[in-house]
């Protein structure tokens, strides 16, 4: 089909590939090649008295590792600096994942398998922590989006909260004819319900002490004995609170999954800064005190 469009050289469309498959696993292949080369160099060298960070190969591996660590850390800047030029954050992430994994090989070979209770091994340990948390992130990114999408359907975060607020207003309205004691229970749902809560609560999805759930349970006995108009008002309030419970559970599930998607970053990012600090100390110390 002859279609005239796209008159400039500007890149417009994009391939439909995940960050893991980017460029036909380009960075995975690159990083395997890098590892193979490093392993080969390690075993082919003739190191005296034994392989370590101080040999020629050790130096090269060390420089390579340090450069990689700094570059990998720059992803945080790249993500936030929106420039006009040609770049793909997805490609950066893909490289970040595979080259980051290759550090396990590169840095381990750099150590020459010499470990001790010192700042050098601390840097190595921090690096492994960063990589491990990153691996957790890869797992989360690869598996959770589907759950996130399934949970929300076509409802947005804003709509979820708006829905809860709308229900609150209706509950308030419905509670007007109630007796003092029951009204106080309903007020519990209106005033004490914590939609999300702190990070740990979101992460664990633990809402056992939800005020709305308590209030709903407490209305039970009153509902059984009430008659006439009072019963009607109670039933209306409790129906609305049941709907609120459903809306809350949807919103909380959403926040729970989002928290899972973010949790690893709370280790990954601080550990990265610690790693950069330990790495600096390691580099300075090996040159000063060696």
């Amino acid at each position: 089909m002859a279609v005239a469009r796209g008159q400039t050289q500007r890149r417009k469309s994009s391939t439909h590939e995940s960050f893991l498959r980017h460029g036909g696993f380009l960075f995975a292949k690159l990083s395997v090649a890098l590892c193979v080369a490093c392993i080969a160099a390690y075993f082919l060298q003739d190191a005296h008295p034994r392989p370590s960070g101080g040999t020629a190969v050790g130096y090269v591996l060390g420089i390579l590792g340090a450069v990689l660590i700094v570059w990998l850390a720059l992803l945080g800047v790249r993500k936030r600096a929106v420039s006009d030029g040609h770049y793909s954050l997805k490609a950066w992430v893909s490289a970040h994942v595979y080259l980051g994994l290759s550090l396990i090989v590169i840095a381990t070979l750099h150590t020459g398998f010499q470990f001790g209770w010192n700042v050098h091994t601390l840097a190595y340990g921090l690096m492994l922590l960063v990589i491990a948390s990153g691996a957790l992130g890869v797992w989360a990114y690869a598996t959770l989006p589907k759950t996130l999408s399934d949970n929300r359907g076509e409802t947005t975060r804003k709509q979820m909260l708006a829905q809860i607020h709308a229900l609150d207003e209706q509950i308030h309205e419905a509670a007007q004819p109630l007796q003092r004691a029951e009204a106080d229970i309903v007020r519990l749902s209106l005033e004490e319900t914590d939609i999300g809560g702190g990070f740990w609560r979101r992460l664990l999805g633990n809402y056992g002490d939800c005020a709305n759930a308590h209030a709903l349970a407490s209305l039970g006995p009153a509902l059984r004995v009430a008659t006439g108009k009072e019963a009607e008002a109670l039933r209306k309030a409790s129906d609305l609170m049941q709907r609120k419970a459903d809306a809350l559970s949807l919103a909380r599930r959403q926040m729970h999954i989002t928290a899972l998607l973010e949790a690893w970053l709370f280790v990954h990012v601080p550990a990265t800064f610690a790693l950069l600090a330990a790495l600096s100390v390691h580099i300075v110390s090996v040159f000063l005190y060696w």
Partner: peptide, 24 residues
């Protein structure tokens, strides 16, 4: 006018955001 193309797609870390013309 931006050489890199649409920023939304460039800035997606996982490749979820794609821009397509329908015939493609």
């Amino acid at each position: 006018g931006k050489a890199g193309g649409p920023a939304c797609v460039r800035a997606c870390p996982t490749g979820a955001a794609i821009r397509v013309s329908p015939e493609e």
